[in-house]
Amino acid sequence: MLTTHTDALPPARTRSTRVPPAAGPGRPRTGPPGRPPGRRDSRRPAGPRTSPTRAVRRRPARPDPHDWFAEQLLLTLSGRRPVHALLGHALPAAYDRLVELAPQAPLRPTGTGAGRYAPAPSVAHCGLCLPRPDVIEAFARIASGERLRALAFRLELGGDARWRCAAVDIGPSTRVW
């Protein structure tokens, strides 16, 4: 039996006739057929597949209620926001207290002399206590330059699932040793 030169060559392989390696018990098949496992198509970005016409929209992370209220109270009590901005976010007693405190602007930045001003106040830290699931008692340390002030407030969860400020108190404005 004589073989010709063409019989000795292996058959030509094309992409469509390529047999993928078998997925054994310890080696699951992870890629598309026709491509060895572990290789990725360089034309396609890595990561989960999403439809090009439908973008995935994620909600921005919502701050915790005590952090949000501390920032809002700081803006109001420093004179950067009017009191009525908190009208729907405060119960009547707390709103009356804010109306009493706001004209004094107890958290406003104070001048440091020689024409320089202190930096705008900011919430340095905010902590909380949960006496009940529907009540948050919070405190905030307000920093303005080297000065540190205390702010305490109480939040209550209403029947409409909204947190409202029920009480506000601010530490003394002068240092007592």
Results as ranks from 00 to 15, higher is better:
79 G>C: 03
83 V>R: 07
83 V>L: 06
85 A>L: 08
85 A>S: 14
86 L>F: 01
87 L>E: 14
87 L>T: 11
87 L>D: 12
89 H>Q: 14
91 L>D: 09
94 A>V: 02
95 Y>L: 14
97 R>E: 15
101 L>S: 03
101 L>T: 01
102 A>P: 00
103 P>W: 01
106 P>L: 06
108 R>H: 10
113 G>T: 07
116 R>K: 12
119 P>R: 09
119 P>I: 05
120 A>H: 10
120 A>D: 15
120 A>Q: 13
121 P>I: 05
122 S>K: 10
123 V>A: 08
124 A>W: 13
125 H>C: 07
126 C>T: 15
128 L>H: 12
130 L>F: 11
132 R>H: 13
133 P>W: 09
135 V>A: 12
136 I>K: 00
136 I>M: 01
136 I>E: 00
139 F>S: 13
140 A>T: 05
141 R>H: 12
141 R>Y: 09
143 A>D: 12
144 S>Q: 14
144 S>V: 07
146 E>N: 13
146 E>M: 10
147 R>V: 14
148 L>D: 11
149 R>L: 15
149 R>V: 07
149 R>E: 15
149 R>S: 15
149 R>G: 13
149 R>Y: 10
149 R>A: 15
151 L>K: 01
151 L>S: 01
153 F>P: 00
153 F>Q: 01
155 L>V: 00
158 G>P: 00
158 G>M: 08
158 G>I: 02
